[in-house]
Every structure is written in structure tokens, then in C-alpha cells.
Design a protein around this nucleic acid. Sequence first.
RNA 1: GGCCCUAUCGUCUAACGGUUAGGACAUGGGCUUUUCAAGCCCAGAAUCGGGGUUCGAUUCCCCGUAGGGUCACCA
Length: 488
Amino acid sequence: MDTNNRNIVTRFAPSPTGFMHIGGVRTALFAYLWARKNRGTFILRIEDTDKEREVAGSIEHIQESLRWLGLEWDFGPDKPGTFGSCIQSERLPTYLEFAHRLIEKGLAYPDPYSSEQVAEFRKQAEAEKRPFLFRNHRPEAFEKWDSTKPLRFKVPEIKRYRWHDAVRGDLEAGEEALDDFILIKSDGYPTYNFAHIIDDFSMGVTHIMRADEFISSTPRFLSLYEALGIAPPVFVTLPPILRDDRTKKLGKRDGAKDILDYRAEGYLPEAMANFLALTGWNPGTEQEIFTMDDLIAAFDIAKIQKAGAAFNEEKLLWANREHIKNLSHESLLRILAEFGAKSSRVAEKKWDLSEEFLSKIAPIVVERLSVFGEFTAMLDAGEFDYFLEEPTVDASKIVWKEEGPEKARDALLRVSEILEKISESNWNSEAVKEAIWPYAEERGRGGVLWPMRYSLSGKDKSPDPFTIAGVLGREETLKRLKVAAENL
RNA sequence: GGCCCUAUCGUCUAACGGUUAGGACAUGGGCUUUUCAAGCCCAGAAUCGGGGUUCGAUUCCCCGUAGGGUCACCA
């Protein structure tokens, strides 16, 4: 089966105008998944034909974002293909070549008007409440193009277009969408309308994934494909990602975050990819958690959703928790070390978050965390201080319910006695639990376990006493129990 | 405004004419329990409205309604 599809080529084609947000990343992901599923080619193409809007550093930022998510490209700004550069500003001769072909066919001509004049035409049309169409002002005879003026496309035929979209099905739109649009701007750069068609053709792109804002300009694209004698690729229109209140498409102005902010907050890239794949696509099964390989295997254009989907941060958090659970021990430690190091408290107190220590607290931390940034916050808030320094213990709180200090002291002393019998080398949380449990059952769990837990942590809320004792070690545990008993 | 697209629980979605309309997130309740977290169990919760077509419509058609998109020398 895969041999049939070896020639599948998809691309992600952002313009370098700033950071990437969820929407762009989702488009990239779908294009990537389809290419990989078919053992095809995934191209990253930079559409930098608007020099005004370009933001320095964007290309690097885009690449970093895609790499973080694991969306490696076969050709990109750093890897040109036989078709040449993947950066549009480096492909100007190609666009010119195709432009001249159109001129020769009489299908392109220089715009004889100044931009002010065109604006005037537009105003007039508006005043008369009719749509503005440049083709109504098309000159009788075409001048020779000297490339100081915009080059316009001469729509060969005003007609209704019908086409097929892999997601939306059969679509159609007509005359009013067709016009003599600009192919090459007066600054010499091509417009999106022109450049993307030439590039997709030159690069052998078979499937175009893009958001639904392009549906309405598809007739223009089709008229140009026709004029160039190029067969259009498969259109795959992705549903919009809506703001969580569903009132608007998610955009940078509406709080859409830089995807790399999610990295900084401690989201896992595989969780992000998993979540994004599921907004606008579904596997048709009840599986919800996917690795990247799972996604590649399961992905199918036929299962892409038509309707817009709201961005649901709660579900992203859940996906992240699920992926955290699936992390290898090594990866988990590496990430905990990274986020632990960000804690100002750790820096202040010069605490050493050794691998051994992190390894011990990892199970405790993982249970309490949705994103790794929370680990930094927990450390900052002093949540795990008792693991790293002796807690200050409020004597009145050691006592379980109405029992009174004597009983609490007895319990602590008895617990100490029992624990002393465990040797240093046999010390771990299970051993502690095993040793204490019979006594706790006999004496009443609360009366034993609460004083023990509180004495070790100095906190109203904490993991169970066995876990804490396991992390603290024999010596420190016995010491804290003794101190607490003496304070009663 | 013209043109185009979309419409199932609060949210992401399944059901490609016949299901008690399923799952997940979130919510509520319970269990477990020394506190917290986690875990487990249960519950509530939807086919936008109106017409058709059909023995039968979430599903097909039409009309509304609502939302979105688009009408640049931006992509």
C-alpha cells in the first residue's frame, strides 16, 4: 500500500511574521502526519513575500517550534531541494519565469493605475453598493511590463467553479470571486495567490492543508491553475480553531499563545501533538491518548472534521497528565531537574536536587501535577520543604482529633521503637509501612498515622507518612519523630 | 451587504437511514482513606427551529436561525 503513495508531498507554509500559535501548529501537524503516514515528503516553506510584515527571527522561531513538536521536515529553509530554495524571497526568478509565460499568453498585464486611483475605484463601487472588481477597469490595450508596476492576472473566463475538497466535499463558487488580482507587486515580490501555486507545482505538492479562510479565494486559484495549465493538488480544508468561548476564530489578538510558551510552562510536545490532533480530527475509535507514531498510523484525511472546534485547555492539561504518566523514568528525572532548577527557593537555599532525591520524590510529584511548571511553583511555595530541611512543628497539631498530647507522644515513641528495628539498608517506604501497619491497625490508624505524618512533614496536607519516611531515610525520620515527641 | 462554509451533551467528538444517541474532558455524588493527591464506581448532561422525502431520520432535500470565513500591491 505504501508504495502507491510514496509520492505524497505536503507542505507547511507559514509567513515569518512572528510566533506560531496553536492554529498554525495544528495545520503543520496534519500536513506532517499525512506525509509520514504515506511515507511521503513534508516540506517547510517560508512565505516571506511581504517584507513589511516580516519579523526578524521568525524563521528560527518557527523551526524551533516545529522541532520541539517533533515535526521534522524533509525540505526546509535549511534544506533546499532539487526545486531550489524553500524560502520564497529566494525564488524570485521562478515566479518571474511563470509571470512571463502568462504575459506571452496575454493573460497578465501591468496595472496602469496608481494605488490611489484603484482606491478611488473601490470607494466608488462601495458608494454604489456593488462589489468592487478590478476587471471592470481592465485597460483596453496592455502596456509592456517594466516591473515597476504591479502585474495583474487577466482572468480568462468568468464562470462558476466547482471543485472537490477532501474534507468539505463538493464546493462551488462563482463569478463574483473572480478578478484580475495581482501576481507580482510593484516591489517585485509575488503575492501569495501567485507564489504558492507556482511553488506547490514546482515542489510537487500533492495535498494542500490549510484553514478555511482560503475557501472563498479558491475560484481565483483555480482560474490561475487553468491559465498555467497546471492540475491543482488535493485541497484539504481544515476546520478553524475557535476561541474557548466559540465566538471567534483563535488568533494572536485573542490571546493565542506562542506554542513555545507551552514548552516553557512544562507541557510535553507529544501531549500537545496528541491534543492538537484531536481538535479537528478523530480516529474513529475510542482511543484518546496517542504517541506520535500512533498518530501517524491512525491519521486519515477522511476523518477530519468540518465544523470549527473550540480550544479546550482543560483537555490539553489532561492529555499532558496522561503523557507524563507514560514518561520513562530517565525523561521524567531530566524534566524534573530542569524545572526544579528554575525554583528561586532552590537557588536561595542552595538545595541540591540530586538525581537520587528527584528519583525518590518523582512518584509523589507526578501525582500532583498537570504541567511541569507546577513543580517549580510547588518548590517556590515551599510545598516540599520538609524533604529538604527540618520542618517547624506546631505541637498542638501533632495530636489526633480529641486524643490529647500524651497519647500522641506514646504513639510517636512506639513508632520510633518499631522503626529502629529496620536497618539502614532495608529502609524504604514499603518496609516502613509493613512495620507500622499492625500497630496502626491495633491502636487506631488515625491516632498513629496522623501524628507520625505531621511530625515528619509539619504540614496539614502531605503525602502519607510511609512515603515521607522512605524519602527522608532512617536517621532523619527517627530524629524528627524524637523531636516531635519531645515537644509534646 | 454580496459570496462561501458550518451546526450532536458546557467542551472535543462517535453513530456514513433503524443504537436505550456511544466515548473523552469538565461538573456533581459515592467508594477507598491518617491529611492531600491519585485511583475506582455512579450520575446528570446533546441531535438549533420549521417543513418535506421515507415504513423509519442526528444522518438526505428545502426554508429559516445562529456562528464563522472572505471580499488587499496580507498571507
